[in-house]
Amino acid sequence: MSTPGVDRPIRVLLADDQHLVRTGFRVILEVEEDIEVVGEAADGERAVSMTRAVRPDVVLMDVQMPGVDGLEATRRITGTDDPDGPAVLILTTFDRDDYLFAALRAGASGFLLKNGTPEALVEAIRVLARGDGLLAPEITRRVIATFARPGAAADPRTGEAALDELTPRERDVLARLARGASNAEIAADLHLGEATVKTHVSRVLAKLGLRDRVQAVVFAYEHGVVRPGG
């Protein structure tokens, strides 16, 4: 199976109701040799149908669009059993916690604000195409702050059955993922090889039914695997 960005360009679909915004994204991305824009959609319904038709690796998704919004479109795109389905990167001008957490729970693999740099956008696409999740640093801090508030986390029992499937080592890996550690940092901390850590991460995601590291962070805080500052 070919690897996007290595064996072939990363295929990107743009979903935004503003034509000028889509044009701006296209101009930024098309100068990159390892990225190819394969389509544009002006609403969520079209984004879902085009995703099925052109099978992008990454969908850049706006939140507020007419008809089906970006959050519902994300749920439809990520709610399939397709292991090769695209990653969704939410891009919005609205710096609001309700959008952030709704996007993550809808299955988005990353969340960036539109006031970021072109370089940050390009790097985010490459990160998601590799199968990793991405949150801007300020957003990661807000995720942790939200779950630090009394009563903010979900009842840990709701994830108990899934967590019981993890080995002690896999649970250690999940806890370190939730604190933002890279594979190299986890390997050093647990005295393991990076390849072994990568295997553990893959197994954790599979057993918990998660798409990527971003969802693992949210799951771990929601279900009490780690506590902010713990």
Rank of each mutant, 00 (worst) to 15 (best):
K114Q: 10
R211L: 02
G110M: 11
L128V: 05
G67V: 03
A162C: 05
F25E: 04
F219K: 05
P228R: 10
T158C: 07
A187Y: 00
T167V: 11
F25M: 15
G67F: 10
G70K: 02
T140P: 01
G5N: 06
D57F: 07
A102C: 08
L13R: 11
L60K: 01
V31R: 08
T140Y: 10
A152S: 13
R211F: 02
P9F: 06
R203M: 01
V201G: 07
V88L: 09
G39L: 00
A53T: 04
A162W: 02
I125M: 11
R141I: 09
G5Q: 13
H191G: 12
V173D: 06
E138F: 06
K207F: 15
R76K: 09
D132E: 10
T117A: 11
G24S: 13
G193Q: 15
L14Q: 07
A154M: 13
F111T: 00
H19L: 15
A206M: 05
Q215G: 15
E165R: 05
K207H: 13
L89W: 00
P4D: 12
E160G: 14
E185I: 04
T92G: 15
L29G: 11
M50Y: 03
M65I: 00
K114M: 13
E40I: 01
L174E: 09
P118D: 04
A162I: 02
G229H: 07
G116Y: 02
A154V: 06
G131D: 03
V218K: 08
T167Y: 02
E185D: 12
S109P: 11
A102M: 03
I10S: 01
A152M: 11
D212I: 00
A124M: 14
Y221Q: 11
L13Y: 06
R130H: 08
S182N: 04
S109L: 00
D95A: 14
R157T: 08
E165P: 02
F101I: 06
A154G: 04
A41I: 01
V54D: 09
T140M: 10
V218N: 02
L163R: 15
L113E: 13
A15I: 00
R105I: 02
P228Q: 06
A106P: 07
P118E: 14
